[in-house]
Design a protein around this nucleic acid. Structure first.
Lengths: 191, 191
DNA sequence: ATAATAAATGAATATTTATTCATTATAAAA
DNA sequence: TTTTATAATGAATAAATATTCATTTATTAT
């Protein structure tokens, strides 16, 4: 590993990795392709990372933190339950629309053999504030009374699938469409 | 290919393929592992299939039809809009709970390089009855007015993610939980 | 400007894995 | 039963791909 990491180079490698994994899956990722796409030599990848597995894990940790941030940051919009929820939902939805590869990368990782138990736990930690927010909403009778993990799964699954469809079919979502998507999310969790 | 296909053998191969792809992705699928898991020799796989790619595609076509059937069959429960929708939703949800590997296999396929344009179109055809049902629901002011593709994505994404969570965390869903999950789905699409 | 150090390179090698095919086992026909 | 045809086998081969390392290029210090 170089003493002073060239952040531009690292960013290029991360970007290439994410884009290629999104297309081909983890086992399909070829180091030669990552190298070509990020504009370095294959050998250079091994200057920065011990192995393909190490590369993938590094990219995961960085990306997962960013993705989680897209939701959690919005929590600190103070307002009514509805306003805060709306800020979080839109925060995440728009993030996914802008960064579908990152969304897909993180999603895939959880079902790949690559993820470690430690990383699963760390990952869950990121979402603790969201759990608290939903539990608070249940106490105040806004939110349906059930395991918040199921609520989160419902919300996340719906957003991801919509974004995947939009990206796959190259549809342009209008503001009105997004509002109805939000209404679906809101109506689904409230009682 | 043997003249009289040994259906037991084919089933074993399909089952092994689905389970392994679910764990390792398409590129991660190893013919030697499929062989071992299905109790045949590697060479035998090439008696039945021209290549790994052919094997995967064959498994996809059979599995996708079965998965689509899990939703569509329930449409012919005649009743109110709510009753029919409930039958379809539970039909698909329960199918996914019982066959998470098949659900995951089909889901992954759509984002793998393996799918062909022809298969995408064929796939969409399977769901035409569901489209019609939702459009009818919109005409009668039951269902939110938006592109039904978005509604389907929302419903499917939510179901898949919940099932994935349940399987991942080995939770046992109680009847009450399932009812609330259905309520989330119903509330999300109705206006 | 020169030397010393660090980083990058990519062709060569090692490893992994799909595919083949000569051989063996099984089933069907005579 | 013997012959013929069909199916299955798995070790050997070919192809694909991760990793190494001797060499080159760039950067920093004197």
């Amino acid at each position: 590993m170089p003493k002073s990491k060239d952040q531009n180079k690292i960013n290029a490698i991360h970007k290439a990795t994410i884009e290629l994994v999104t297309k081909t899956g983890f086992s399909g990722l070829k180091m030669a392709e990552v190298a070509k796409k990020s504009g370095v030599a294959t050998g250079t990848l091994y200057v920065y990372y011990k192995s393909k597995e190490q590369l993938i894990n590094d990219v995961f940790v960085v990306t997962k933190k960013e993705v989680a941030g897209a939701i959690i940051n919005s929590k600190y919009v103070k307002g009514s339950f509805n306003e805060t929820f709306k800020a979080m939902w839109y925060g995440y939805f728009k993030y996914c629309l802008l960064n579908p590869e990152k969304m897909l990368f993180v999603e895939q990782f959880i079902y790949s053999g690559y993820i470690t138990e430690a990383n699963i736990i760390k990952t869950n930690t990121y979402f603790e504030p969201l759990n608290q927010f939903l539990i608070e909403g249940q106490k105040n009778d806004y939110v349906k009374k059930m395991d918040v993990a199921l609520i989160k799964a419902h919300l996340q699954g719906a957003i991801h699938e919509i974004v995947k469809m939009v990206v796959r079919e190259r549809v342009k979502l209008k503001k009105k469409d997004m509002n109805i998507c939000f209404a679906m999310a809101w109506d689904s969790i409230t009682q």
